[in-house]
Write a protein that binds this DNA or RNA. Structure first.
Length: 619
DNA sequence: CAACTCTGCGCC
DNA sequence: AAAGGGCGCAGAGTTG
């Protein structure tokens, strides 16, 4: 009987915050077993320090469950709970199931949060949390008066109230915490039933779970991030900001908050009475850098420069500095990768979002920011970056089976080839323009190549080329004529998406397509295929490196079409050999589209000290 | 104070 | 007919 009741459990933890690597700790662990039995255990939170203490016997009781290899464990956000438990010395062994992934595999377009899901699917009301929240908010006010250390508001999406549920009356916490474990287990069984209806669902889920420990380890290693460089960049940008701000204030005649679209509007379109050239989604006059630049006024460059310095400080360096922790003498930052962060199955990255670290060398921004300077390999290591060149274009060509696009990609200079095909009609129009000191065709071709993959329509082309509707339509038609398979391919896919509400990609993933926006299915197909290709390669690389521990090499970042591996410096012959093998595997499509299409080209780069500086690497 | 929306902006 | 896809995050401003 006892064995039966322990067949499967769901676990949930309440913690003092979202950052296990920065010292937040679990103070409540709850479980629900497959007979519906609920159990919880609560640690002591010191109100002055927010430190959590557990007795030896309490830890043992938790470990008896999580370290039991034969007991499968179910979570709603497994990485969060497992990491927090790891930080209080509790291992998690045996099978792990992640309900969030199950739900994503089934309904990629759904918003995935535990309570709304449970409310909708299980008709479990979310009242318990409302009650708990209200009680916590009240308790927070009183705790503040007593000088207790309550969670502070943090603009990174952290919910300070949730991190303070320990302040609420214990009975509420018990009821609430236990019910989340219950929700999780119920959703698990419900999702499992759905997954079992199609072997492709189960397969995708298993693939994600195979990747789960790889993501977990990658985050666990983290990246070096220098707090000194962050501070230096903050000071440097403050000086820059002040310099430009002074000029702005001189022109405006009074202080103005440039981060406020409202104040900017009042000045630009009110006081200066500049003509409004573009609007936001909601119909108010736009004040973004691109719109302002259209106005061609000397104050604009000052505003843009000032804002850029402000963004550099606030969005990048300060944010990074907050996440750095000294570990064995090294300043390390652990990003939080969401393995199914996007509807298209892409990873996302948060707290901080290293997918968005500004790179001045790559941007076409008016006022480029370099936010990568603090990051780099640990001492004694290098970063090797792999990067698929034009992977989405290759997939677009392969999926549409457009041999002309494929041939142009094979030239290694896709945008030039497109320009010559679409606008030159066989002539080398790019070379001709170069001779005359113009370069119109290639830029247009590049815009079209990217734009079409994104689902760009006539209005976007009009905006880009600043031309009439008729001309924009003509340019698009020229493109479709150059690559004759593309239009029918897009049409067939969109029609299917409109009919069925989803599409399947070549990796057997089902993707939900929002009703009324069937055109996005083209992008979903391409983006998801690239994402799955990346994931399949991560599932190959991680065991490859693990099996060669002597190489001392680790995955540290995954950025859509780029992988970063930290390897010992300098590169030894056996490492170069391994990199050669890795490169060959990254390039190998294994006949996924058709036998003649063998490779997706990969480039390697190397970072020696700082992420902003890298060089080509031939292996 | 908490919870929300809007805007803008960085990346692939 | 009419549509540039996918993210995360900071700060301003509004609402109750």
């Amino acid at each position: 009987m006892k064995l039966l009741s322990k067949r499967r459990i769901a676990l949930d933890t309440e913690t003092t915050g979202l950052f296990p690597f920065l010292g937040d700790r679990p103070y409540f662990v709850s479980t629900c077993d497959n007979e519906g039995k609920l159990w919880g255990i609560r640690g002591q939170v010191d109100p002055m320090t927010r430190n959590v203490s557990w007795t030896r016997s309490q830890l043992q009781q938790i470990a008896d469950l999580t370290e039991d290899e034969r007991l499968p464990k179910t979570y709603f956000h497994a990485k969060f709970d497992v990491r927090h438990l790891e930080k209080i010395g509790i291992k998690t062994l045996g099978r792990i199931d992640e309900v969030m992934f199950m739900v994503h595999v089934l309904f990629s377009a759904e918003l995935i949060k535990l309570k709304p899901l449970a409310k909708r699917w299980l008709q479990i009301s979310d009242d318990d949390e409302h009650v708990l929240r209200a009680a916590t908010i009240k308790a927070r006010h009183e705790a503040k008066k007593k000088g207790w250390k309550i969670a502070e508001k943090d603009s990174q999406g952290e919910d300070p109230v949730a991190a303070d549920y320990w302040l609420a009356p214990p009975d509420l916490l018990w009821r609430y915490g236990l019910r989340d474990a219950e929700r999780t287990l119920l959703l698990y069984y419900l999702s499992l039933e759905e997954l079992e209806k199609d072997p492709r669902f189960l397969r995708k889920y298993e693939e994600e779970m195979e990747l789960w420990p790889i993501t977990y380890e990658m985050e666990g290693r983290g990246v070096r991030c220098s707090p000194q460089i962050c501070q230096f960049e903050i000071s440097r940008n403050r000086i820059k900001k002040n310099f430009h701000y002074k000029r702005v204030v001189e022109a405006v005649g009074r202080p103005i908050n440039l981060r406020s679209p409202k104040q900017l509007c009042e000045y630009i379109y009110g006081k200066l009475a500049m003509p409004v050239k573009s609007y936001t989604e909601n119909g108010s006059p736009a004040t973004d850098a691109d719109s302002l630049r259209k106005l061609d006024h000397p104050i604009v460059s000052e505003i843009v420069a000032c804002k850029a310095a402000d963004v550099a400080i606030g969005n990048f360096f300060q944010t990074y500095a907050r996440h750095i922790r000294l570990e064995e003498g090294l300043p390390i930052l652990h990003p939080d990768f969401q393995q199914l962060g996007a509807r298209t199955t892409r990873f996302s990255c948060r707290r901080p979002n290293l997918h968005a670290a500004a790179n001045a060398f790559n941007t076409r921004s008016f006022e480029p920011i370099q936010a990568r300077t603090p990051f780099g390999p640990r001492p004694g290591y290098l970063w090797v970056h792999s990067d698929w060149s034009q992977i989405e274009m290759w997939i677009f060509a392969a999926e549409s089976q457009d041999e002309d696009l494929l041939a142009d990609l094979a030239t290694g200079n896709i945008h030039t080839a497109t320009a010559n095909r679409v606008f030159g009609h066989g002539r080398d129009i790019v070379a001709e323009e170069m001779k005359e000191g113009r370069s119109n065709a290639r830029g247009r071709a590049k815009m079209l190549n990217f734009g079409v993959v994104f689902g760009m329509g006539v209005p976007a082309v009009m905006d880009f080329l600043k031309c009439s509707r008729k001309e924009a339509q003509e340019v698009l038609d020229l493109y479709y004529r150059g690559y004759p398979r593309i239009k029918p391919f897009m049409r067939e896919l969109s029609d299917r998406a409109a009919r069925e509400g989803f599409i399947w990609n070549r990796f057997n993933r089902r993707l939900q397509v929002p009703r009324g926006s069937a055109y996005v299915s083209v992008n979903y197909l391409i983006q998801s295929s690239a994402a799955e290709y990346m994931k399949s390669k991560m599932r190959w690389i991680a065991p490859y490196l693990r099996a060669r521990r002597a190489l001392d090499a680790y995955l540290v970042l995954t950025i859509h079409d780029e992988l970063v591996i930290e390897v010992p410096a300098p590169l030894r012959p056996e490492m170069l050999l391994a990199l050669k093998e890795i490169k060959a595997e990254l390039e190998n499509i294994h006949g996924l589209w058709w036998p003649e299409l063998k490779n997706l080209p990969v480039e390697f780069k190397i970072t020696r000290e700082r992420w902003d500086k890298n060089e080509k690497l031939e292996v």
